[in-house]
Nucleic acid binder design. Structure first.
Lengths: 318, 318
DNA sequence: TTAGTTTATGCTCAGGATAAGTATAAGCCA
DNA sequence: TGGCTTATACTTATCCTGAGCATAAACTAA
C-alpha cells in the first residue's frame, strides 16, 4: 500500500456527477389533491443529495422536514432520471435526479420558506373526471391529437397514433383508465401540445391548458400521481393523508380526489368494513349536513396483521 | 455575466459521486429461471454510468449488449440505492447504484466474457414452492426465526417478530405469498441468518442455505424477482422470455418457474385464450411426450390494442 | 307542521371471474 | 392391448363486484 503519493485521479472525475432529490409531496385538503411546490408553483421541491445523509431516503426526509417543519410519513421512491441535456446546458455538471413520493397533510406543514400547496389538477386538468369527462377532453385534446395523428407520414403510423391517443385518453367510447397519467403526459409531449415540449425554440406550437413546470418536474409529478392512483387500490395509503378521525364520506372524497373519479358509496363502505381497515371511534361528526355520520379511525393493526391489504376501490363506470 | 475568471468550484466536488448501473438479467431455460452473473456467480453484472450515454436506460443497454453480444428486450428500472458504507470503505468514492430488470433468453447470449447464467433459486432456495414448500422452510428457517424472535428484549417485540416471520414465510398455516421476496430477504438479513449480514466481523453467526453475493447484489436480485413475480400477473412480459413459438405447457412452465408455484393447467389455458394473448401458428410441437400440442405465438397486437393487459395467473392453492 | 333536501346505512341482485374437478382425446411405448 | 403422458373440453360452486332500491336521521324552507 505504501508508495509515492499519487496525483488525484482526474480520470475518475470525468465520471463524477451530482445527485438531486426531487419530492412529490401530496396532501388532500377539503377533497382536493395538493402538491407542494416552490418557485411560484413552477417547480417541485428539490435539494442536493449530500453524503452526510445516511441514505437517499433519510436525505430526503431531512430537507423536507427542514422545509416544512414537520416529519414526513409515508415515503416511496419513484424513479431516477439522468437524461443528458436535462438542464439544457451541456457544460453544467451532469446530474441525476432521484424522485420520491411522500404523503402528508397540509396542516402539518409549518410556515416560512417559499413552499406552497397547489392543486394537482392545475397541472393536469384532463385528469379530473369526478364531474364526468372534462370538456377540454373532447373540445380541445381530441381534435389536437387527431390533427397530430393525421400529420404522421404513413397511413399505418396515422392509425397507430390515433389508437394510442384513443386508448390513453378514452376516445372512441373506450373506458377511461385513471392510472395512465404518465402515458397521457408523454403522448401530449410527443405531440408537442405542452409548453415543455416546445420550450427550446421550435416556435410557438399550439398548446393545451395546464400549468407547466421547470425541467421535467411535470413528468415526475405525473409519475407520482400514476403511482399513487395505482397504489391506493391495493395498499391502505390513503390514511396517511387523513386526519386521525374522519367520516367514511371524507375518506371516500379523498380517494375520489386522488383517483379523479367517483366511487360507489355503498360498495365503498362495504369494502372498508369487510377489510376491517377502519374502526368506529364512538363519536359522531359535528358540523355536518344531513344525517350525522359516525367517526372512524384507521386500524393501524392491519399493517401488522397482513402483508398486503387489498384496498380495492369500487370505481363507478358511469 | 462577464467578470474575473473564477476558480473551479471545489465546493461542488464535495458532492460529486459516481453512478453504477446494476442489471438483473433474467432468462428461463428448460423451465428454470436464470440470472446473469459475473465473478463466479458471486455478483450481478454492473458497470459505470458514463455521460456519453444518452440516458440511464441506454447506458445499460449499451454495456449489456457489449457483454452479451445481443440486444436486450424488455428493460425496466428497479431501484436506486445509495447507502453510505455500501462498499464498506469510507474513503472510496461514494457511489449510487441504479438497478434494472431486463428480460432475455439464454440462447441469445453470445460467448466470451466472464458472464454466466445461474439458477436464481440457488440464491433463494426458500422461494421455490413448485414441489410444495421446501423442506428447509420448516426444518431450518422456522426454528431459526423462532429463536431470533425469542431473543427480542420484550414480549411484545417477540410477538411482533414472529408475526412478521409468519406472515412473510407463511408459517402457522398462513398462505404463502410469492411476491414477498424482498421482505423475506430483509427479515433474514435482520435476523443475521445470511452471510451478508454478518460479513463485517460479528463472528460466525448461524447461516441459512443460499448462495451469497457481493455488496447488496442479492438484495437487488430479490427486488428484481419480486417485481417480476408481481408483473407477470398483469402484464404480458413472460413472452419476452419465450422463443418465438411455444406450446401452452412450455408457457405455463415458464410462468411457474418465475412465480415459484404451480398453476392450474386448465384455467391457465382458459385465461390465455379469453385474453387473446396468443394465437395458433398452425404447427404442432414435435419431440414431445403424450398427445401432441399445438404451437402458439404471442399476439404482439395486444400491446397496441390495450394499454394494460391483465395477464392474471390462476395460482393453485394446494 | 310538513315537504323537500342531504347524508348515512342496510340489503338485494345479477353477472363475471376464479378455483377446482371430471371427462375425454390423442399420442407413445412396453 | 393396456398403461403412461399430455392436450383439451366442459361443469360446478364460490366469491367478488357493480349497481340499484329502500329506509333512517338530521336540517331547512314554506
Amino acid at each position: 500500500m505504501a508508495g509515492p503519493p499519487r496525483k488525484p485521479k482526474t480520470s475518475e472525475s470525468a465520471r463524477a456527477i451530482t445527485a438531486d432529490l426531487v419530492a412529490v409531496l401530496v396532501a388532500v385538503t377539503d377533497g382536493e389533491p395538493k402538491i407542494m411546490t416552490i418557485a411560484y408553483a413552477g417547480a417541485l421541491p428539490s435539494g442536493p443529495f449530500e453524503f452526510k445523509h445516511r441514505s437517499l431516503q433519510s436525505g430526503l426526509r431531512t430537507w423536507v422536514e427542514q422545509q416544512t417543519g414537520h416529519p414526513l410519513g409515508y415515503v416511496e421512491q419513484l424513479y431516477t432520471f439522468a437524461d443528458r441535456g436535462r438542464t439544457g446546458d451541456a457544460k453544467s455538471p451532469h446530474s441525476i435526479s432521484i424522485s420520491y413520493l411522500g404523503l402528508t397533510r397540509e396542516d402539518q406543514v409549518g410556515p416560512g420558506s417559499e413552499a406552497h400547496w397547489s392543486g394537482w389538477y392545475e397541472y393536469f386538468p384532463w385528469e379530473d373526471h369526478r364531474a364526468g369527462p372534462p370538456a377540454l377532453l373532447g373540445k380541445l385534446l381530441a381534435p389536437r391529437l387527431r390533427a397530430w395523428s393525421k400529420s404522421a407520414p404513413s397511413a399505418a403510423l396515422q392509425r397507430e397514433r390515433w389508437q394510442r391517443a384513443a386508448i390513453t385518453f378514452g376516445f372512441d367510447d373506450r373506458e377511461w383508465n385513471e392510472e395512465l397519467v404518465l402515458q397521457r403526459y408523454e403522448l401530449l409531449y410527443e405531440a408537442a401540445l405542452i409548453p415543455e415540449a416546445v420550450r427550446n425554440g421550435n416556435g410557438a406550437a399550439p398548446v393545451v391548458p395546464g400549468r407547466a413546470m421547470t425541467a421535467d418536474h411535470r413528468r415526475i409529478l405525473a409519475t407520482g400521481i400514476a403511482r399513487l392512483r395505482a397504489k391506493i387500490k391495493y395498499r391502505p395509503v390513503v390514511f396517511e393523508l387523513m386526519p386521525a378521525e374522519f367520516t367514511l364520506l371524507q375518506l371516500q372524497r379523498s380517494v375520489e380526489a386522488l383517483a379523479g373519479r367517483l366511487v360507489h358509496k355503498q360498495n365503498f363502505r362495504r369494502l372498508m368494513e369487510q377489510q376491517q381497515l377502519v374502526e368506529e371511534t364512538g363519536a359522531i361528526a359535528a358540523d355536518t349536513v344531513g344525517r350525522p355520520a359516525k367517526l372512524f379511525r384507521f386500524r393501524h393493526a392491519v399493517l401488522a396483521e397482513r402483508a398486503v391489504a387489498g384496498t380495492k376501490l369500487p370505481l363507478s363506470r358511469t
